[in-house]
Amino acid sequence: MNSLERVLAALRNQPSDRPALFLNASLYGARLTGAPLAEHYTRADIYAEGQMAVRETFSPDLLISPFFVSSIGEAFGSPWRALQGQAPNVMRFPVGSAEEMLKLPLPDVDSHPRLLYLRETIRRLSTHYAGEVPIFGVLVSPADIPPLVIGLEAWIDALLFQPGVAQALMNRLAPFFVDLAKAMLGDGATGLVLTCNLGNAFLVTNSVAETLTLPNLKAVLEEVPGPVIFHHGGCPLLDQLVSFKGLPQVVGYVVDIAEDLGAARGLLGPGPILLGNLDGPGLLHLAPEDAQGLCRRALGQRGGDNQIIISTCGADIQIDTPPETIAAISEVLRQAGGASS
């Protein structure tokens, strides 16, 4: 079985030779190529080389476009800074409120240079790995875009105290999101990975999630012509999983670090794939045998479930994580075999 066949088997709830593996190694590619981060996050050829190096070194079964959400902020005018050893971060907001953001022009997904960079990484990877490795485009939902442009405080303020303005802003952002999603799929992405942190009651009130952010998410997902994996972002997901169940186009969920995959399956029922539950950033502190222990624990939670993909959660695997630790995870997966019935 190749990686694409392995992931498709999981999606179809069919047995496979072993569980598929996903590593959030967007940043780590730069470690393997030695490319300066300023180039890794601005040149599609350099980024794609990094993902190819990740694939060659650790054999993950899915690859991703840059996990670089500040690029979306940049498209709306937020400058970012290339930081030592980490993905770039928005350093200043062009406007200070949802009302002001409503007046900003929407970026053109066919001409903005940073969006073209994201898209080009998908084109290169999907061409290189056609029929062999699924490539996923990384996106944030409309509810998660304003924190990159006006800041989290101003956005929470709008969601709580100016719901009409917040609704109008998400409605305005919807076509941009849909255009970018369609463009990424058109570029060859097998599917999309997206977050909706502001739909999670860990960050907002149930009322905001139920009346504003989740209805918006459902509406935009209806227009996405391809499969979507819902990512927990930085938030716990298990307690909120039922709220996100049955979202249009969503074929899988990445749960939070150490959240029980069996418990998640119990909440979701059969159908969607589940990805989890290794601590991606925390691998830095683990010896290879400890990482293998976490991996075996996750495998133990799958039982006879064909639809589990072992995955890192949280943010990027850190750039100074020893490669031996990541390789140890790949080794456990290689030896794992199919799901036990």
């Binding site: 405080e153 929470i156 303020d157 969601l159 709580l160 009651a201 860990f202 960050l203 907002v204 009130t205 149930n206 905001v208 307690d239």
Partner: peptide
């Protein structure tokens, strides 16, 4: 505790 979120902390 359920019902306490970053948003309610902000409030």
């Amino acid at each position: 505790h359920g019902g306490v979120s970053l948003a309610t902390g902000y409030v």
